[in-house]
Write a protein that binds this DNA or RNA. Structure first.
Lengths: 207, 207, 207, 207
DNA sequence: AATGAATGAGATTTCATTCAT
DNA sequence: CATGAATGAAATCTCATTCAT
């Protein structure tokens, strides 16, 4: 398995298998519980195999993160491209995010565990976006687009983006922990809140 | 120190000192970085002293959690008692939470680190509320009160509570990581969103 | 055991004990055989104890090197101070070096193992003198002094120093490996060679 | 490749290639740095290939040693055969040794790394000559021949041989480490020392 | 009240080697 | 002829905890 070479079928299958086991363990047992030994045990292989396919634990975790991020980003981009009006775009953004979460709760939860816990030798977060968070910036831009087009009310796009993102991000943890969590209802409520928070409107008592 | 005995002044001072150092380390270096050795080093004492005042690491972390929770709960309860209308109460709830966060960012962040990472021997979260989360239930109740009184629109109180809580909870991490985070602006925006999301209103284009 | 503090008696005794065991193992089993496990086993303690008294394997090995170097340097300096003429100084240098070797064969051999094998993360020798080798420079200076005073013949001091040092350095390995090695005879022969190589003289056939 | 069979051309070419890479790695990264993985990487082949051509790491290292030894021995024997007088023979020995070192510094250094570090399962040196060291014995015999013929002074042939050998052996390390090492000057100085140490002479002040 | 000393469990990682293809 | 896959042993190091003083 040399760098720059096309991975064989077996190789990419094994990598996928190991990454999936890592995701399982991370979702179930958290960051500290996700030792190579545990991941290997779950995969029914020896620790060494993990290190044969990944150059180290860091590499494995980074691979999980970029893999899941990639798939999520693709799903969202695809969904957004099917809408034009800012309101529809925001709604699609929320809906796709939550829908992806529903089908990939463990993956997302695993990524959250990694991103919020992994730290380099210097003690700083390994996966913290340096400078601006691109995920947040993207959502912020969607909000600004709606303001520029006049569809949206005046608001602080940056901070509203944070509010919406946090409402999305909280879900993966809940889905993993609480099996009775009603994602459909949550989605409806969040869509309602987002609409109320963005679209220009008058409160009743001001009439 | 025997069980049931009143702690001496020295004792409770030492406990507080150790807890504060634990909070510092947790906020700076995260859960995995918060070893007893590091906490003791920061306090300028030996590991043994930590274990003299706390029965173990679990005990220390639990004490930090309950201490901070207690103080936060008190601050919030006090603030809420000064308002009567549901709208004012919710606003006070948000404002007090965020204000407490501002002054106790490290503490809250430490608690978040503990609650989201600490696990028992069986691998389950040590600090997960079993059954209903009382913090969430409290906020939910405030929302329902507003609905019952007719002040608030019809919404899904449980899920709206989750949305609001997540918008509050995301702040401690940001305050620790991003020194330029503008809490005042965030508070304004969140108050606006909460009002829009709760108070009965009509959107303009529906008029 | 905090940095900068005076070591307790127990502590320095343990450190000495561990260093001695490390020296034993290094002399007997070589650099690769000198694992922490083996050193601890020899000392009748657990691996953790070694790491309690030394911050890591590197620290232990560095301590051994500087300890032995220190004692050797002191012995040599003391001996040299008792002689004045360049010829006597060189002879004393050789004699003291070999004498020290006789009594500290294992120590010196251990240091040789460390110095010639230990490498940093970048792959370079950890204990290589950067720039000029001070040990060699010292001997070189002794030779030059003899030349300046007119006692010694014209020779290439730097390279002669290398020849003499290598004749000294080879001994520790032989002493450890070959118990029948006759150090006294070797010393006599080396002294003879050094004298022949330094003192001004005429060969018989040139007369 | 069955035992006793003549190796094919490809086979011996591959073996040579692998041995050369092993020599490179040993000279650059030392014994501990010379893992099969690193050697294979340097050769652009997989670890398995190395083990296909050599029965194990030990076999590879042993092959390197005997290959280099063989070539060195041949060069020296050839050179010696061109001289008759003991003085000329010794000079040729020194000159040829150092000349060989100059052109094969890495090889010799690699062999030194192997010989001084490789150990069997029992912890003893794998390549230590059991009984008398033939290399040393050879040089010793040259010295004795000169004494028997009356060309050389009275000295302790065994120990003088050790001194001369050590002066030769130290060079490979220096050549690898210190690119500014002046081998020609060193050779001149060592030849001078050897002559002074062997040839009968009178010191000036004894006249 | 405080601490130094010691330990065992477990984490990541390296490496030579075996096996099937 | 060559390789990818897999493994187990061993190495260094971290950490919470216990014990005697």
């Amino acid at each position: 398995m040399q760098a720059g070479q096309v991975p064989t079928f077996t190789e990419s299958a094994r990598r996928t298998q190991i990454m999936n086991c890592a995701i399982e363990v991370l979702a179930e047992s958290g960051y500290s519980g996700a030792s190579l030994a545990e991941i290997a045990r779950r995969a029914g292989i020896s620790k060494s195999v993990v290190l044969y396919y990944f150059s180290g634990k860091d590499d494995l975790l980074a691979s999980v993160v970029s893999d899941v991020y990639g798939r999520a980003g693709q799903a969202i981009a695809e969904s957004l491209s099917r809408h034009v009006s800012p309101g529809d775009k925001i709604a699609a953004y929320v809906r796709t995010n939550l829908h992806f979460l529903e089908e990939h709760a463990a993956e997302i939860h695993a990524v959250v565990e990694i991103v919020s816990n992994a730290r380099g030798a210097d003690g700083t977060h390994s996966f913290a976006p340096q400078g601006e968070d691109p995920v947040l910036a993207h959502l912020e831009q969607l909000l600004r687009d709606g303001q520029d087009s006049g569809d949206f009310r005046t608001f602080d796009a940056h901070h509203l983006a944070i509010i919406i993102r946090s409402a999305i991000d909280t879900v993966s943890g809940r889905l993993v922990v609480d099996p009775s969590f009603d994602l459909a209802a949550y989605t409806r409520e969040l869509l309602a809140v987002v609409e109320l928070a963005t679209v220009t409107h008058r409160t009743e008592d001001s009439s």
